[in-house]
């Protein structure tokens, strides 16, 4: 394994020939997909293309019928539990924002920070480093002056940022984000895009997205899924011009 890593750049996520079927319907169909360390990758595709399923498989939520998912060079996702995978550095944001509405913004971050400590240490207060980490994160996601507000009354966009912040305090090595800008205003989308780019300096990021304008503005490398298979992959300018992509998107543009 070490020999390999000398020769080529390391893969943080390696999806190998994965098939997922729901009662015979193949949501993923022999998919090969990989991300290099430090990469910011966008995954696009029409409704039902299998994007969310791809994240489900990568985080162990759904078990593939065949194929394998390797995280960080040696971790076989099939052998992990949801929480052990997170502890090894794989964090994921779900499509619907799920923050704890009855807790304040600060408390939401506070509740996520101790995930790697022994359970009983959750009974003590935060250490100074943890507090600093939370404050840095609040600044990064732009919710510093909202930290006392209950998360339940945040605007939709703010909830999405908070959820991203909750993952960031866990210092993941790979962050999977499912439609982080869905339902956002253009202004919020631009802020999110900048946030994603600054996050990409710290860890590898996979962003699943629908919004083509957003992808054009912020993506470099894009993977297009369609019917559970990879349609094409490459620089965003090339992918946009790809005939198959145009067809898939135009064919269903306003479906």
């Amino acid at each position: 394994m070490n020999v390999q890593t000398h020769n080529r750049p390391e893969k943080i996520l390696d999806v190998q020939n994965v098939t997922v079927s729901f009662d015979g319907f193949k949501a993923l169909d022999g998919l090969d997909f990989s991300i290099q360390k430090g990469e910011l990758r966008f995954v696009i595709g029409p409704n039902g293309a299998g994007k969310t399923t791809l994240l489900d498989v990568a985080t162990g939520k759904t078990r593939p019928a065949s194929g394998k998912v390797i995280f960080n060079g040696g971790v076989d996702v099939a052998h992990e539990m949801e929480h052990t995978l997170v502890r090894k550095g794989l964090s994921r944001k779900f499509q619907t924002p799920s923050v704890f509405g009855s807790l304040s913004v600060y408390e939401n971050l506070e509740a996520t920070v101790g995930f790697n400590d022994p359970t009983l240490s959750l009974l003590r207060g935060l250490t100074r480093e943890e507090e600093a980490l939370i404050h840095d994160t609040l600044a990064l996601i732009g919710l510093m002056d909202r930290m006392q507000v209950k998360a339940g009354i945040l605007a939709h966009g703010e909830k999405q940022w908070l959820e991203i912040g909750m993952l960031l305090v866990q210092k993941p090595s790979l962050l999977l984000l499912d439609e982080p800008v869905a339902g956002m205003t253009r202004q919020e989308r631009n802020r999110t895009g900048e946030l994603l780019q600054s996050i990409a300096h710290r860890c590898s990021v996979v962003v699943v997205e629908h919004d083509m304008e957003f992808v054009r503005n912020f993506a470099k490398t894009v993977t297009v899924l369609h019917l559970g298979q990879m349609l094409c992959e490459g620089a965003v300018e090339d992918v946009q011009r790809d005939e198959r992509v145009v067809k898939v998107y135009l064919g269903r543009a306003h479906a």
């Binding site: 985080t59 539990m81 964090s91 995930f115 359970t119």
Partner: peptide
């Protein structure tokens, strides 16, 4: 949080 949404808590890395 576990009471309200257990799977969410799992995906935050808690057992």
């Amino acid at each position: 949080a576990l009471r309200d949404d257990e799977s969410r808590v799992r995906f935050l890395g808690y057992d």
